[in-house]
Design a binder for these strands. Structure first.
Lengths: 224, 224
DNA sequence: AAATATTTTGAAAGGACGATGAAAAATGCC
DNA sequence: GGCATTTTTCATCGTCCTTTCAAAATATTT
C-alpha cells in the first residue's frame, strides 16, 4: 500500500487527511513542518507527499526543493486561498498538483490517487507507440503483439514479460529481478515460474523466439 | 517558442497555467472572457488556446466557434465536471482536448505539449460530425448512434463510454482509466461497474459488439 | 564419460478474471 | 410523491491463465 507523508502545521488538517487516507487503505506519516518532512524523507521513501506551503521553521516549497535533491517523490501542494500563487507556481520545481484550502478531503484523495496512478517516473513522456524487431511488432498503446503482421494471442503475463524484456533489451535479467519487476515485489513463489512463462512466450513468438536468450546460471535477456 | 492564449475568468487559474507554461518556455497571453479572446485572436496568431467554458460576456464554445471562422488554432477546453461535458461533445466544433476542472497543471501542460506536437486530436475522425465503422454510425453532433441505419437506444453512460472508447480507438484502456475519464475522477465505486456497462453497451451494439475487445488482465479497447 | 548443475518441457490443479443476470439504489420525469 | 429508467452493486459460473512439480533434455564440470 502506498505511503503518504502529510506535512502541515495544523494538527486538524493532518488528522482529516490521515483519516481519509487510511480509510482508503493508505499508510500515512505526519510531519509538522518542512524541516521535519525533509528529515523523514531522508530516512524513508514515501510514495507521495501532501505538503502545506505556509509552515514554521521551513516552508513547503523550500522543503520540496530540498527533498527533490535526492528523491523524485511526487508532491501535492496545499495552499490557503489568497496566498501568493505567483510565488508558488514560479517555483522551479514541478509539483504534481495543488489543492486550495479549504479543500474537500474526498477531492484531495482523488487527486492523490490520480497522481499515484500517473506514475512518478522522471520522464513519462517517453512512451513509444510501436517497437519492432524484424517481423515482431509490439504495439504498446494497444497492448498488441503481431508476428509477421498476424496478431499473436499473448496472455497478460506473456505480454508483461515480453514488454519488460524488450524495455531492457540487451540487459541480463535474473529470475529474481524479473519476478520483482513483472510479477511484483509481493510475489512469493517459485523461481521456476519464470521459466515456464519464458517457455510459453517463446512458443507464442514462433521464429522470433530467437530474441529471447538464456543466460545459464543467470537468467534471460532480450537480444535483437 | 509556441504562444499560448489562456482564457479564463478566474485570475487564479490563469496564473497557474501561465506560470507552468512559462516555466516550460512557452509564451503566454491572457484573456478574461470569450469576447476578449476573440478580439485577441483577430490581432494575433496563437499556437494553442486553453479555454474555459463558463465565462461572462461570451462563453467558451461560442468564442471558439467565432474564432474558428477565420483560424484553425487548436483548442483545449476547460470545464467543470458535470457542467458542460455533454454539451461539449455535442458541439459542432472539434476541440482538440478537454480537461476537467479541477485539473493538475502538470497534466494540462502535458496535454498542451501533446496537442502541439501532433497538431490535432487523438483521433481526427472524432472531429467529424459522424464517425462510422461498417454499419455502426456515431453522430457526435446529435449524440446519436445508429446500427445499420436503425437508431440504437443508448443510455447516456453507454454513449459516453462508447464515445470515449472510440475517441481512443486502438488504445488499451484500464478500468481505472475508464472510470476516471468517463465517470470522473471523483467516482468512488466498484471497478466492476465498467464491466456491466461494457456488457450493456455490447448488447446495444448487436453484431458490432465485435469492436469492443476485452484485454484480459488489463481492460478494454475499441478495435476497428 | 560420468556426474552435476541448470534449463526446458509437459501436465495437472488451483486460482484469477471477466461475463452475466438479478436486485438494489439512484436519478430523472410527470 | 410516485413511476420509469438508468446506474451501480453483488454473487455466480465458466473459462482461461498461472503456478507448481517432476521428468527429460541440455549444458558444464570433474
Amino acid at each position: 500500500m502506498p505511503k503518504i507523508l502529510i506535512v502541515d502545521d495544523e494538527k486538524m488538517i493532518r488528522n482529516v487527511v490521515k483519516e481519509y487516507a487510511e480509510f482508503e487503505g493508505y499508510e500515512t506519516a505526519e510531519a509538522e513542518n518542512g524541516m521535519e518532512a525533509v528529515e523523514m524523507c531522508r530516512k524513508e521513501d514515501y510514495d507521495i507527499i501532501v505538503m502545506d506551503i505556509m509552515m514554521p521553521r521551513l516552508d513547503g516549497y523550500s522543503a520540496v526543493k530540498e527533498i527533490r535533491k535526492t528523491k523524485h517523490t511526487p508532491v501535492i501542494m496545499l495552499s490557503a486561498r489568497g496566498e501568493e500563487y505567483d510565488k508558488l507556481f514560479g517555483f522551479e520545481i514541478g509539483v504534481d498538483d495543488y489543492v486550495v484550502k479549504p479543500f474537500s478531503p474526498k477531492e484531495l484523495l482523488a487527486r492523490i490517487k490520480a497522481v499515484l496512478k500517473r506514475g512518478s517516473s522522471p520522464d513519462d513522456s517517453v512512451k513509444m507507440e510501436k517497437i519492432s524487431f524484424e517481423g515482431l511488432e509490439i504495439n504498446v498503446t494497444g497492448r498488441e503483439v503481431t508476428i509477421d503482421g498476424v496478431p499473436a494471442q499473448l496472455t497478460p503475463k506473456e505480454y508483461d514479460l515480453l514488454f519488460y524484456l524488450v524495455k531492457n533489451k540487451g540487459i541480463a535479467l535474473s529470475r529474481e529481478k524479473l519476478l520483482e519487476e513483472v510479477w511484483g515485489y509481493d510475489f512469493y513463489g517459485d523461481d521456476r515460474t519464470v521459466d515456464t512463462h519464458i517457455k510459453m512466450l517463446r512458443s507464442s513468438l514462433g521464429e522470433y523466439r530467437k530474441f529471447i536468450v538464456t543466460l545459464r546460471g543467470m537468467g534471460y535477456k532480450f537480444d535483437a
